[in-house]
Design a protein around this nucleic acid. Structure first.
Lengths: 334, 334
DNA sequence: GTAGTTCAGGCAAACGTTTGCGCGAATCGT
DNA sequence: ACGATTCGCGCAAACGTTTGCCTGAACTAC
């Protein structure tokens, strides 16, 4: 590893003190025009790049220009879009992003939270694994700015940006009912996740609004992974009196559900109608095109990053909570 | 920002010197059993976490336990899978991953390369933007371990892990021909990317092997994004004498192609057959199921990370070059 | 019993920054 | 023309580690 040029190298070359170099770079303190020129010249010549590690070590607070993003799984397109959103605004503000997958595993989440702290990131964006997650609570108590996305934290008044899951689910199920369905199967999210609960609530409220009662034998709860979507759909379809429509609470599980449906050779929407949460890449060219409730994932990430940056530069500001609206995209599958 | 406990805090509490604490943590040097116990006790009590920033600053070389991953776009499922692969092996080895999207933008790539160096990562994984990318070359010259994925660098004997694009494309087009097609449209990748060129070569060689000549009016080259797939497919379909089959060189463009096909209301595979590179999430439940050539993206990431870790701990080892085989998954779209 | 060796652990330098303090020179106000 | 302010810049401490060197003490060998 060839040694990188450091402040002292450029200082020597420009015949000034290192503090002068530091100050010209950061535009802090008054520096004469000629001195500045010499310093810049030396920097060019040596191809000097400030060492971010040393800088972070010295400045415990403020602008180390590193953000942490901890998400369940980057292979879930929702989180990929979200990640892209935060990455884009980070880049525009000269921040880099430390990205980790915690895979719904509390140990992994804790590990990465530790890493972030140890790296002294400026702030962290994450969907908390639980409503009150002791690990992240400890981090915020420690003074690290945190903004929650997608799911929220019950305690603490943190910045957060979420999706209005209730209204999204409500609209979806309302639409299903309007198509004449009365037996609507639910493939829900984990009961201990706020998204899962809110979407379930939307499902129930849409029933209530239409004067329908929810049939508890049509309710299944998965883990947002494809396999569970497939398995639970199969359970529902195997019922003596199966549902005529399905509301599936995320994209991966919707893909799983479609597998089950295909395996049984059922026609959509005649034999089984379906609407899923999340957008799927091929949804609009699927046969039939899938009606889904699209979440503005990119915008969630974007807003979260903007909120985080604001908080970093003004730690005392009151916490703001954004709720973005999903949109029901009606196509042909229901 | 409450101050984190540091080495001196635990040293004070355990009534030893900070160097003793450091040595017990890193298991370097001989330490008495009782002293060790005291130190560990103090660490627990203070919830001490070593500061990775300070550690990285001190140890220019070796185990700072941070990997850099620079990819074109995390929204491309191929790279998401790849990223997941490197992340998993990184986690197993207690490494964190710094992830960036450079979006095929040389400026962005250079920016992130600088960031990685400034963060003194232990090593970098990336698909070079060009065959000989000066920015990347400079980094390897600087002594930072680099492994190339997906695309390769012409100069330099670096570790790399690629897909056998030629054989994948060859198999795909061979299969198309075997189905009786003679006019096979190509939606290719960028001409200046090694993947694009290799897949094109497979297309041509499959034609040659079957005694067919390639018709240059059936050739189109996109940028691996969905929009170009749609646009170029539309061009092909609008031809007076359009192709009867399509070979599309990546997943996103395949999705775009399907949009064009759907817009024209063409039946697959009767009116137009199609096989695409990359796997798509709904490919197997699509109607009809899509025959595609699946790239082992996760394994590429996994192998790359393993190679990188090996090189980090043994910088002098000869460069190894892996070539992973894609598999043609024959379904119903051709 | 003495010299040599190992054991346990302390001291302090170094990594590359940022920044409070200080100081001579220049500029200013009157 | 002289004290006061500002300007431009250097000095050195600090951030939290790792690690080479050193030093007593204990142990080994003869």
């Amino acid at each position: 590893m060839k040694k990188e040029p450091s402040l002292v190298d450029v200082a020597r070359r420009a015949k000034v003190n290192i503090s002068t170099v530091s100050r010209t770079i950061n535009k802090t303190g008054k520096i004469g025009a000629d001195t500045q020129a010499r310093v810049f010249k030396a920097m060019k010549e040596l191809r000097y790049k400030p060492n971010r590690v040393a800088r972070r070590l010295r400045m415990r607070d403020g602008s180390t220009h590193l953000l942490g993003l901890i998400i369940p799984n980057i292979q879930n397109i929702f989180f990929a879009d979200l990640a892209r959103g935060v990455e884009d605004v980070a880049y525009r503000n000269n921040f880099a992003v430390l990205l980790c997958n915690y895979d719904e595993d509390p140990d992994k989440e804790r590990f990465y939270l530790d890493v972030m702290q140890a790296e002294s990131v400026d702030g962290i964006i994450l969907p908390p694994i639980h409503e009150n997650d002791p690990a992240v609570l400890q981090v915020v108590e420690n003074g690290t700015p945190v903004v929650c996305v997608d799911r929220s934290l019950s305690s603490g008044n943190l910045d957060k940006v979420e999706i209005d899951n209730h209204s999204g689910a409500f609209a979806a199920v309302e639409h299903i009912i309007k198509q004449g369905h009365r037996r609507i199967g639910l493939i829900g999210g984990p009961a201990d996740s706020s998204t899962g609960r809110e979407r379930f609530r939307g499902y129930k409220d849409a029933h209530a609004a239409a004067g329908l009662t929810v049939k508890s034998d049509l309710l299944r709860f998965g883990d947002y992974k494809q396999e569970s979507g497939q398995r639970l759909t199969e359970e529902l379809l195997a019922l003596a009196n199966p549902p005529t429509a399905l509301f599936v609470c995320n994209g991966l599980m919707t893909a799983g559900a479609l597998e089950s449906i295909a395996a049984r050779g059922l026609r959509i929407p005649k034999q089984i109608a379906i609407v899923g949460f999340d957008e799927l890449p091929l949804a609009d060219v699927f046969n039939p095109p899938l009606t889904m409730v699209r979440q503005p994932a990119y915008e969630v990430g974007k807003s979260a990053a903007e909120l985080l940056l604001k908080r970093i530069e003004e730690p005392g500001r009151p916490a703001t909570s954004l709720k973005l609206l999903p949109t029901l995209i009606i196509r042909k599958s229901c």
